[in-house]
Structure formats: structure tokens, C-alpha cells
């Protein structure tokens, strides 16, 4: 059963109060080499069926629609767990070959998703 990882970050140009608070705490710990922190979200989504581009595209569309609010966040990455060596099923995915390094879906690749992004920003 493949696991798809979706990563979401607050938009770069917007203030990230969570990250600011963490950075402040680190600086109070004396970690002066750390100059900034931004906090985002990682979703690990289990799907039934084959790990193919179709399901990746489906989850990518879902990410734009629900997992992220494109007004305030960006979908940074949509990929199979294992492609980055992390995630619940990474080991199993590698063992079964259920892994892709195809990151072409990391950007909204369907016309619908792109239209949605434009709409979200308008």
C-alpha cells in the first residue's frame, strides 16, 4: 500500500508566526547560528492501489484543494514516501520498487490545478 507525502509551507512572502516563535526560542538557547525557522506541514497519505502517476496527480489535486489553502500556503512537494527516504512505508516501498523519483507533480501540473491556484490568488 503506497504512501504519498504532501508537504505544505506558509507562503514565503507571508509572516510565519510559528516559525518566528521557534526561532526566538532557539536564539534564547544561545543558538546564534540559527537565523530563521519556518514551520510547515507534512501529510502522509495512504492509498489503495498501484503507486502510479495517476494517483500522484489525484493527491496533488487534493493537496491544492484541501490540504493547503493556496491563499496562505504553498504545496511544496507531492511524492511517494521513499522517494526521499522518509515516511511510514519508505522501507517497504523501496523493497517492492514502489518508489518514484518523478517530482513533476510537485508543481500543479494539471490545467485544473493551475486554474485553481490562479483563482485562489485572485
Amino acid at each position: 500500500m503506497p504512501t504519498i507525502v504532501v508537504e505544505v509551507m506558509p507562503k514565503a512572502e507571508l509572516l510565519d508566526p510559528q516559525g518566528k516563535a521557534v526561532a526566538g526560542a532557539l536564539s534564547r538557547q544561545g543558538r546564534s547560528e540559527i537565523t530563521g525557522v519556518r514551520v510547515g506541514k507534512r501529510f502522509e497519505i495512504e492509498v489503495a492501489g498501484p503507486a502510479d502517476d495517476a494517483i500522484l496527480a489525484e493527491v496533488a489535486a487534493l493537496a491544492d484543494e484541501l490540504l493547503a489553502n493556496l491563499v496562505i500556503e504553498d504545496v511544496i512537494s507531492v511524492h511517494f514516501a521513499g522517494a526521499d527516504g522518509f515516511g511510514l512505508d519508505a522501507a517497504a516501498d523501496f523493497a517492492s520498487g514502489n518508489v518514484t523519483t518523478d517530482t513533476s507533480f510537485d508543481e500543479a501540473s494539471t490545467p485544473e490545478a493551475q486554474a485553481e491556484i490562479r483563482e485562489g490568488l485572485s
Partner: peptide, 16 residues
């Protein structure tokens, strides 16, 4: 805003 009936969005208060 989440339902797209109104534009924009709400994020955590800037002072946390």
C-alpha cells in the same frame, strides 16, 4: 474564506 465565499485568509496572530 475556506469556502471561497470571501476572499483572503486568516493566519495565526503575528505576535503568536
Amino acid at each position: 474564506t475556506e469556502a471561497h465565499l470571501l476572499p483572503g485568509g486568516l493566519i495565526r496572530n503575528d505576535h503568536g
